[in-house]
Amino acid sequence: MHSDENNETVEPAEHMRFARYIDALAQVPPARETALIADVLADPDRAMAESAVTRHLDRRATELLADPEFPVWTASMGDTVARFPFLTRRLAEWSLFRAVSATGGHWEPGALIAATDWLQRKVSEHSASPQALRTLAEHGRTRRVRNAARARLNG
């Protein structure tokens, strides 16, 4: 924040755009979601735009986790964010989280071992899968993940 000539605090433009993006993404109808995300990702402040879209993807993935349309949604989002490696990985990790935690789908332990700290923490704190928890108790990247997985296994 900075001050203008009247000594009032003025919100930086990127903060105002971020807030507008978050608000618009929270209200977007499904039919316009990919178009709005593409518009947000066209913002010249790439870090801010990716942050807004990450927040949206996390919110929507949480809402859709048990929905049979989740794979359709992730495919359409994947096409929309394909030029953005972080967002692409985040979607892939949401799919892995869904397989491990929500649907009991097929997944490979190696994928969980190679996952980001974010996903390993999420699985260790929220999954009821004994296989996932054993995998993280033994091979989790951080002590926090290993301890959380062990505690869930033993609790």
Rank of each mutant, 00 (worst) to 15 (best):
D4N: 14
N6I: 09
V10E: 09
P12T: 05
E14H: 11
M16S: 15
F18P: 00
F18I: 11
A19Q: 13
Y21P: 05
I22N: 09
P29G: 14
P30L: 08
E33L: 02
T34H: 14
A35Y: 11
L36E: 03
R46F: 10
M48L: 14
A49F: 11
E50I: 03
A52S: 04
V53A: 10
R55V: 06
A61N: 06
A66R: 06
A66D: 11
D67N: 06
P68D: 13
E69R: 15
F70D: 04
V72D: 07
V72G: 14
W73A: 11
T74W: 00
M77N: 03
T80H: 01
V81W: 11
L87K: 04
A92M: 09
R98W: 00
A99M: 04
S101E: 04
G105N: 02
H106G: 00
W107N: 03
E108K: 10
A115Y: 03
T116N: 09
W118H: 05
L119A: 09
Q120Y: 06
R121Y: 01
H126L: 06
A128G: 15
S129M: 10
Q131W: 09
A132F: 03
L136F: 05
A137Y: 09
E138T: 09
R141W: 12
R143Q: 14
A148Y: 07
A149H: 04
R150M: 14
A151Y: 11
L153N: 08
G155P: 01
